[in-house]
């Protein structure tokens, strides 16, 4: 019968009292931590969540599904994000919402003590808050994942150092696993550096690469080809015996690419090739023509 009318009424009419009590409960259970989250911000978050619920209470609370509401998703994402940033655990983050149960239920008891509707009202209020809690878990997760993916990107950029070996010679030692996104970054960084240093030879050293699959090999070939289009020679060095076997077994054609056993071999080859040009034997004083 009641259909959450009382809960809705409380949410609409007793917002301020609820907020005060909620904050109190938060400090009781020990998750009101001003050293992590400033009190003003916490207060603001409480207010916004209650505002959201009050708005939801205008409609039918039984049907309220916060994950369908863009406002709710946005608000909870914001709340989770502010907590992820300061390192609050997912448990505490969820508990923030669940703590609202106590003040809300207490109010329900005050109003409906002993009536038949009480259990129904409590059940409904419980459901609404549980849905909200589930959503906040999800948004916490999303927020965390975005942090991780950002770190991954940063790592990616750090892991492609292009070093100048000699005047007009750059080397890119690759370490770790090469996946498509990384090879893409490798390609871009190398080409950018070829332009900025005016190098006419680039050495791709894959000594530190443990596995090469078809896709990676394809990308390496593309890098070599793109470097050639720009007017630079690209040498691949440090191919491990296992990788050489894989490449042959996969039937990849590396005949268009100069390959050398080690970075030292590749470097020696480069120097030898330009031995007739005395200017190039100078390791770096020659002005690059840009």
């Amino acid at each position: 019968m009641s259909n959450g009318l009382m809960t809705a009424k409380i949410l609409r009419e007793e917002k301020d009292e609820l907020e005060a009590e909620w904050l109190e409960s938060l400090s009781e259970v020990g998750i009101r931590r001003p050293e992590l989250l400033p009190d003003a911000e916490l207060r603001q978050q409480c207010e916004e969540v209650l505002g959201l619920l009050a708005e939801a209470a205008e409609g039918d609370l039984a049907d309220y599904e916060p994950s369908n509401s863009a406002d709710a998703r946005e608000l909870l994402a914001e709340i989770s994000h502010s907590r992820v940033r300061v390192g609050v655990s997912p448990r505490e983050n969820t508990r923030f919402i669940l703590t609202l149960k106590r003040p809300l239920f207490r109010r329900l008891f005050d109003r409906a003590e002993g009536t038949e509707e009480l259990s129904e009202e409590v059940w409904l209020a419980n459901q609404v808050l549980d849905r909200l809690a589930l959503l906040i878990v999800e948004s916490y997760q999303t927020s965390r994942e975005s942090v991780i993916s950002r770190q991954q990107e940063e790592l990616l950029e750090l892991s492609t150092p292009v070093v100048k070996l000699w005047n007009g010679v750059v080397a890119l030692p690759l370490i770790g696993t090469l996946d498509s996104s990384r090879t893409q970054v490798v390609m871009e960084t190398l080409l950018e550096r070829i332009v900025s240093t005016g190098a006419d030879t680039a050495i791709l050293d894959i000594t530190g690469v443990s596995t090469v699959d078809t896709l990676v090999a394809q990308h390496l070939l593309k890098t070599v080809e793109a470097a050639r289009l720009m007017g630079a020679d690209c040498i691949i060095s440090g191919i491990r015996p296992q990788i050489a076997q894989t490449i042959v077994q996969l039937g990849l054609d590396l005949s268009s690419v100069t390959t050398k056993a080690s970075l030292a071999d590749a470097f020696a080859y480069v120097l030898e090739r330009r031995a007739d040009d005395a200017a190039y034997l100078d390791p770096g004083t020659l002005e690059t023509d840009d």
């Binding site: 332009v195 470097a227 289009l229």
Partner: peptide, 22 residues
């Protein structure tokens, strides 16, 4: 660089053409 990457991705290798940095 961006142009070179795009051409390679499209499979336009410009084979038989010589290239230089500048």
């Amino acid at each position: 660089p961006a142009v070179a990457i795009t051409l390679v991705e499209m499979g336009v290798g410009l084979h038989g053409i010589r290239t230089a940095l500048n």
